[in-house]
Computed example of a mutant assay.
Amino acid sequence: MSKIISVNAGSSSLKFQLFEMDDETVITSGVIERIGLEDSIFTIKYNGEKDVTTLPIENHKVAVQLLLDTLIKKEIVKDLDEIKGVGHRVVQGGAYFDQSVIIDEDVVSKIDELKSLAPLHNPAHLTGYYAFKEAIPNAGAVAVFDTAFHQTLEPKSYIYPIPYKYYAENKVRKYGAHGTSHFYVSSRCREMMGNPEHSRIIVAHLGAGGSLTAVKDGKSINTSMGFTPLAGIMMGTRSGDVDPSVIDYLIEEVGLDMKEVIKMLNKESGLLGVSGVSSDFRDVQEAAANGNERAQLALDIFFRRVIAYIGRYFIALGGVDAICFTAGIGENSFFARKEICNLLAEALGIEIDDDANVNGKGDRLISTPNSKVKVYVIPTNEELVIARDTKRLLNL
């Protein structure tokens, strides 16, 4: 019986899932939010029940100790030594890591070195790593990188058309993100297609953050996020692709400084910026249905940004066998899936089965037999990928 905990430490949060790896069942899962504040929220699900507690949690170390103490108190585990491995999600692995690795001092120093590329995430991942290492020193630790799946991109797809020295000297290039999700969903899609020798798949990971990836024969050949997760499609609060001269204009003519502009593009743009309503797709959809023109405009831009990348990747792949929807919007919004597929219908010959789209559950095909491209909904499971890699690398 080997238990593994998958951990996703954010700047002020700690998500976790504890697996029994013999049958890959989830024993418990939850999240600690608002770490560092007086009203931190600790949510844990176990045995079909959900406990929510509000209390002050000073830092990640305190959060990890609270989680582990709770596992003992609720008798979810009798002894912390039952947890044989800790798998850590790491957003930015740069060009160093094309696969998951056991964490040692060299790995720690590289994750730290890359913090300038993911300033909100990489330092938090290390904080989480140290906290678990101190609390359960006998458990092995593995890093699973969001960027690793995209290390199969070729230079023609990841080098920016700016002076080459910035790549050679400063590592400025496309890295992509959501790689663990894109890997899981594209692999599951190939299974559902009967494991063909050759496959051309576009994965649409649409949530508060969103990215699309072109996957050819199981390998990522291009992805919409770039040097950072600010690039690509329109997102909840992120702009996605914008003419870089807009930044100069806002600084010179409007009087913003660079930090204000980057904050605006990251935190105040996307669905929120255009609609003025919310960063949550459901709120924007509801406002649009009630006649809010800016909310409708936000939806129209969002859908067209998504189909633009699908069109781009259709060409890059030389056609497409399947399009997969995943993540918060992709998995849960039949409205978003239908609107996107309607925009693709004429060009790609897509036909949606409305019943499967609206009423179906879990992994499923939502296109009709007449559709020229298969369309799937596949809920992502990054935590399971993290746990599987941890088990494999630690030989558990």
Results as ranks from 00 to 15, higher is better:
Phe334Thr: 13
Asn342Ala: 11
Gly349Pro: 12
Thr368Phe: 07
Leu317Thr: 07
Ala345Asn: 01
Phe325Gly: 04
Phe334Asp: 07
Leu348Cys: 13
Phe314Gly: 15
Thr326Arg: 00
Ile366Lys: 01
Ile323Val: 05
Leu343Gln: 12
Phe335Arg: 11
Leu317Pro: 14
Ala356Gln: 07
Ala322His: 06
Asp354Glu: 15
Arg337Gln: 09
Cys324Arg: 04
Phe325Ser: 07
Arg364Lys: 02
Asn359Leu: 15
Leu348Val: 08
Ile366Asp: 00
Gly328His: 06
Asn357Ser: 12
Arg337Lys: 03
Ala347Gly: 15
Glu346Thr: 14
Cys324Asn: 11
Thr326Trp: 02
Lys338His: 13
Gly349Val: 05
Asn342Ser: 14
Asp353Leu: 03
Lys338Tyr: 12
Glu331Gln: 12
Gly318Leu: 01
Phe335Lys: 15
Phe325Asp: 00
Ala347Trp: 10
Asp321Ala: 13
Ile329Cys: 06
Asn342Tyr: 15
Asp355Ala: 08
Gly318Val: 00
Cys341Asp: 01
Asp354Thr: 09
Val320Cys: 15
Thr368Ala: 05
Gly330Leu: 00
Gly360Met: 14
Leu365Ala: 12
Glu346Asp: 10
Ile366Ala: 00
Gly328Glu: 02
Ala336Lys: 07
Leu317Phe: 06
Asp321Gly: 08
Ile329Ser: 08
Asn332Phe: 02
Lys361His: 11
Asn332Leu: 05
Gly318Ile: 02
Gly360Arg: 09
Ser333Gly: 06
Thr326Ser: 05
Asn332Lys: 08
Gly328Asp: 01
Ile329Arg: 01
Ile323Cys: 03
Gly319Tyr: 04
Ala327Val: 06
Ile329Thr: 15
Leu365Phe: 05
Leu344Arg: 03
Glu339Thr: 07
Leu344Thr: 15
Asp355Gln: 13
Cys341Tyr: 02
Cys341Trp: 02
Glu339Asp: 14
Asn332Asp: 09
Glu339Gln: 14
Gly319Pro: 07
Gly349Ala: 09
Ser367Gly: 09
Gly318Trp: 02
Arg337Asp: 03
Asn357Tyr: 05
Gly328Thr: 00
Ala316Phe: 03
Gly349Asp: 06
Ala356Gly: 13
Asn332His: 13
Arg364Phe: 01
Val358Gln: 08
Asn342Met: 10
Asn359Trp: 11
Glu351Asn: 08
Lys361Arg: 14
Val320Gln: 02
Phe314Asn: 12
Glu331Phe: 07
Gly360Phe: 13
Ala316Asp: 12
Phe325Asn: 04
Asn357Cys: 07
Arg364Ile: 01
Leu344Lys: 10
Asp321Phe: 15
Asp353Cys: 06
Val320Tyr: 03
Leu365Pro: 14
Asp353Lys: 01
Arg364Pro: 00
Ile323Pro: 09
Thr368Ser: 06
Cys324Met: 03
Thr326Gly: 02
Gly328Leu: 08
Cys324Phe: 01
Gly328Gln: 02
Ile323Ala: 00
